[in-house]
């Protein structure tokens, strides 16, 4: 059975229709890249899957592990194993990274029928995962994402993913704003989490990230629809010819 099945998904924000019937099936262990120009609906798809209320689903269906995903509040989706690495991780002054992550991990563990981790076990776990992401341990004691550099924020996302061990990871433009060294570290962290039980949906504008996180499938999104699907070579083709080569333009540009 597919882990994620998206059928004819439509969504809008305010009065603006953004997704116009997305069909996508992701099986366990697969990595799917979603590419597309600005305004094509990539990030909207990512946010809708994670349950952002800002977007209103106007049609279609999403099954996650056979369950109706769209009926679940965001926290239940997370507990069921969905993780969204944000394009713009949110700064939350006053809440320490450590407290936040411990609360999150223990909620998720409880849901999976695992015992809550005590402070010591938690610390050992996060130390190990921080090493993987080459993160300074002092980041743990700082408020969530507050005053973090762009690179630190993105690392923090993948670090959280490593701690929470999702079944379906959705990476929303995780490469944006990263220099090549940070990109290697972040991609290394993501690759270390690849496993036959874990699926990934990697949303990106540029092919660059896919040199490091090599996808099994590539889908090109335009005007809220998947217009082309293929293997990893499709990303390379896009790199050469650009979206225009497929007859796709940024929203608002003359077609």
């Amino acid at each position: 059975m597919a882990l994620l099945e998206i059928k004819g998904l439509e969504a809008k924000v305010g009065e603006r229709q953004i997704l116009n019937g997305i069909d996508l099936t992701v099986n366990a262990g697969e990595v799917h890249a979603i590419m597309g120009p600005n305004g094509s609906g990539k990030s909207t798809l990512a946010q809708v899957l994670a349950g952002r209320e800002l977007y209103q689903v106007t049609g279609g269906q999403v099954l996650y592990d056979g369950k109706d995903l769209l009926a679940m509040p965001p926290e239940d989706r997370a507990r069921e194993g969905i993780f969204l690495a944000f394009q713009y991780p949110v700064e939350i002054p006053g809440v320490s990274n450590m407290y936040f992550l411990k609360a999150a991990l223990n909620t998720v563990r409880k849901h999976r029928g695992l015992p809550e981790l005590d402070a010591m076990d938690f610390l050992n776990l996060v130390r190990e995962k921080m090493k993987l992401m080459e993160m300074e341990q002092t980041l743990l004691n700082r408020p969530v994402n507050t005053g973090f550099s762009g690179g630190e924020k993105k690392r923090n996302e993948i670090f959280q993913m490593a701690v929470l061990e999702p079944r379906l990871a959705i990476l929303d433009e995780t490469d944006s704003g990263l220099d090549i060294d940070a990109l290697r570290t972040v991609a290394g962290g993501v690759n270390a989490l690849r496993s036959p039980e874990r699926s990934m949906v990697v949303v990106t504008h540029y092919q660059r990230l896919l040199n490091y996180i090599v996808p099994d499938f590539v889908h090109v999104l335009s005007e809220g629809r998947i217009v082309k699907s293929g293997g990893k070579e499709l990303a390379l083709q896009l790199e050469e010819s650009g979206y225009a080569g497929l007859g796709i333009y940024d929203e608002g540009e003359a077609a």
Partner: peptide, 26 residues
């Protein structure tokens, strides 16, 4: 902050707990 609420929820933290966490943080 709706975005902060969603961020916390997207990590598995329940809406009510997220609200009290953010209020406390204020």
């Amino acid at each position: 902050d709706a975005e902060a609420l969603f961020y916390l929820q997207s990590r598995g933290i329940g809406k009510n707990q997220a609200r009290s966490l953010l209020t406390y943080a204020f």
